[in-house]
Amino acid sequence: MKRFIFISACLVVLFCLPYISAAQMTAAQILTKVDANLNSAKDQTLMTTITLIDKAGKTSARTMSLIQKGSDKRLVKFLSPADQKGIAFLSLPNDNLTVYLPAFGKTRKIASSVKNTKFAGTDFSYEDMEAKKYSSKWTPKLLRTDGSNYVLELSLKSGMTSDYSKLIMFARTSDCYPVKIEHYDKGGKLYKTITASKIEKVGNYLIGKETVMADHKTGTKTKMSITSAKFDQGLTDDKFTEREMIK
C-alpha cells in the first residue's frame, strides 16, 4: 500500500511537472517544494567543515559530524580543533537541547529560548539552525521570476516569532532548490544573507555542499562545506541519546 501511494505520488509529480514549471506555480507551491527539497530525507549523516571568516578576512576552521533524523532529532559532534574535540550538542523535540563538555565529562541541558544567539561562534543563530519548515512559519508571495530563479518574499505568520522581519528567497525555477535567502531585520534592513552553491544530487536528494552565511552588520562570514553526505541510512532513535554524545 505504502509503495502504491509513493509510486502514485511520483507519477503525479512527473505528470504535473511540465505543466507546473511551464505555467505559473503559486508562491505556496514553490515554498512547499523548497521545504520538500530541504526536509525530505528520513535521516542524514553529514561531515562538515565550518570556516569562520572575520571582518579582516582571517579564517579559522573546525570540523563536525552531524546526524539528523526527521526534522527534530539532531546530534552534532565537534571533531577539531583539538581543544573543542568531543563537544557535542543533542537536540530533541520540544526545544530539548543538551550539551556535552568533554573536559568536564558532564552533560548539561541548555535552555534554548534564545533564538538570536549565535550558534557556536558562527554567523548562524539557533533560529537559523532550526529544522522547521519555511511554510509552517512564513507566508510566501511571489515577487517575480528573475532569470532562472523564483523570487519569493516571506512574511512572518501571525503567532510566530523571529529575529527577522522578512526573508527574500531565490529558488531555482528548475527544481525549487533555494540558492539565496536574504534575511531582513526588524527595521527592514538587510541583516544576513545565506547562499548555497555546489548543489548536487546525492542519492535521491539535492544538497548544497557549500553554504555561506554573511552577517552584514558585523562583516563576518561563516562557510559550511559538506565533505560527505549520506541519506536514509535507517538511523535509529538510540543514536540520539546522551550516551551517544559521550562516545
Binding site: 563537544i87 563538555l101 573536559a103 568536564f104 549565535k118 558562527t122
Partner: peptide, 16 residues
C-alpha cells in the same frame, strides 16, 4: 583548573 575546561566553556558563549 584546566585549560581544556576553559576552552570548553568558551565554546558555549563563543561569538557573543
Amino acid at each position: 583548573d584546566s585549560r581544556d575546561k576553559v576552552s570548553n566553556l568558551w565554546f558555549l558563549v563563543e561569538g557573543d
